[in-house]
Design a protein around this nucleic acid. Structure first.
Lengths: 144, 144
DNA sequence: CCTATAATCTATAAAATCTATAGACTAAAA
DNA sequence: TTTTAGTCTATAGATTTTATAGATTATAGG
């Protein structure tokens, strides 16, 4: 399961993608519209900013806005940033690899093979899923 | 990520599958060989027993053993039992469905669509992955 | 029947992680 | 120079995960 943090991040980014190139958006605005605790959202946006997904502007008329084009931000990157590994086992993770404590012969582990398969399918779908694609799918149903 | 509990369960089950129809196996034996805290393992095996995946025998010569054939126990069932939902979002879970707090129009949620895709691919792989299949894959490399 | 064995049950403790909030600080605009 | 709005540090509260202790019950074998 995704953490709330990660879900908040995705919702906030979709919200900002809907407003791409329309100037900065207040944290407050995002928080209210998406029902995210403001202080929690602050930390999330800051992290997305440090990852060069968002930019921000301080002071009056300030706020957050997408740094990249919506088609250049995919769910993999967001999820890794917020929740860490995508894989279901550490010994199978590409970005957060750790050997399993339990198993001695990783290369011949039947369990591991299964989760390599799951990982690959998951990565495939998530890397194709960009903010642009998400917007596209819900076109005609845009709220707000 | 799978919880330790779930990983322990899978390892214990593979261990028992290797000893299918060879009589009961002590908790102690499984715990030592698979490096699982015994008391923790007790609780896990009990849960697997209640789910009719394992059977047990008390007293001298007792222990745990697979109730079903190794080809009739897949990872989906084990993971659901140990960790709950497989899906990454509650609004996408088949067995543990809950509506998302954040979104108002579930049927047109672009985010949801993505995770339905991930769920389907994951379920497909995991439901095909049985204890028998795991054993088969690591044949010739059997430890112990 | 008695004893040793091994699973079962109840309760709880320790650790880790996730979620949320408070308040002081800094930069920018008007 | 005042107001606005993001930044930073610190911490608190809640929940979940992981692990352990100890008493109880069932079974086999003598």
């Amino acid at each position: 399961m995704l953490s709330k943090k990660c879900k908040y991040a995705i919702h906030a980014l979709v919200y900002l993608a809907e407003r791409y190139q329309q100037g900065p958006v207040h944290i407050q605005d995002i928080a209210e519209q998406q029902h995210i605790p403001k202080k929690f959202l602050e930390a999330i946006l800051l992290e997305l900013r440090n990852a060069k997904i968002l930019h921000s502007k301080k002071g009056k008329g300030g706020g957050y806005y997408l740094y990249r084009k919506p088609e250049d931000v995919n769910l993999i990157e967001i999820m890794r940033l917020m929740d860490g590994a995508i894989a279901m086992l550490p010994c199978v993770s590409l970005n957060y690899y750790e050997p399993c404590e339990e198993c001695r012969d990783e290369r011949n582990c039947g369990i591991r093979d299964v989760f390599i398969g799951v990982r690959d399918e998951t990565l495939k779908i998530l890397s194709e899923s960009t903010l642009a694609q998400i917007l596209e799918r819900q076109k005609g149903t845009r709220r707000v």
